[in-house]
């Protein structure tokens, strides 16, 4: 379970507080939810996802993940959480360029110390679901945008994290690829019971979400 209590995030330039990116956010996301954070550009979607993903700190308030308050954790523990409990899908795919598709998908599992046989089995399984099983030997730069995004999704889900955070995953995809990606994410959500949190202002993504959190100027308008 993810719980945010009176969370505020400020960005500073020097001493002066420049942007109040998140305003008194109070939010609870239950296990297995499929949620989309939506709102206009600059409303704080990415900031919220980064905070929940333990990539960025919050300025005020409390953020609880699976019963642990994030502010109390060391940098090492935060890295450990990102590795073992989170899966990330970024707008710009962010694959490791020197690793092929198979190695990119299995990367997190290898870091977690899974046996090679189990990794190969799981990579193939996920690759088949995402229809990239014929590209396992290819390097990321040889794939289309849609294929790269599917590899990024496969990498995020392969190790069966508790939460997948996807920041504008369809922003660089055409509508057909966006639809395919959403269908796959929904399927993974129901099959693997993974909590999925999207940020998006794509109508198709919003329509397919089970819960929508609407942000405006860093405040939750509806959830």
């Amino acid at each position: 379970m993810i719980k945010l209590i009176d969370v505020n995030k400020y960005f500073y330039r020097g001493e002066a507080r420049e942007v109040h990116a998140l305003h008194n956010i109070n939010l609870t996301i239950e296990e297995g939810e499929f949620t989309v954070v939506s709102g206009p550009s600059g409303c704080g979607k990415t900031t919220l996802l980064n905070a929940i993903g333990v990539l960025d700190s919050i300025s005020e308030g409390e953020l609880w993940l699976e019963g642990r308050e994030i502010a109390q954790l060391s940098a090492e523990e935060k890295t450990e959480i990102r590795l073992k409990e989170m899966g990330f899908v970024f707008q710009a795919y962010n694959l490791v360029p020197v690793l092929n598709v198979e190695e990119n998908i299995g990367f997190i599992m290898r870091l977690q110390g899974y046996e090679e046989e189990k990794i190969k089995e799981r990579v193939l399984e996920v690759a088949k679901i995402l229809k990239i099983d014929d590209k396992l030997d290819a390097l990321p730069n040889l794939l289309s945008g849609g294929q790269q995004q599917r590899v990024a999704v496969a990498r995020a889900v392969a190790s069966k994290p508790k939460i997948i955070l996807a920041d504008e995953p369809t922003a660089n995809l055409d509508s057909r690829n966006s639809m395919t990606l959403m269908e796959m994410m929904r399927e993974l959500n129901s099959r693997e019971k993974i909590t999925i949190l999207f940020s998006s202002h794509d109508d198709y993504v919003i329509q397919n979400a089970r819960r929508i959190i609407l942000l405006e100027d860093g405040e939750i308008i509806s959830s």
Binding site: I81, F90, V96, P97, I108, L111
Partner: peptide, 16 residues
């Protein structure tokens, strides 16, 4: 730099 940023964000520790 970007690649290392990605690695750090997905849980690749600085020691790695």
């Amino acid at each position: 730099i970007r690649e290392f940023g990605i690695l750090l964000s997905i849980g690749y520790a600085y020691r790695n």
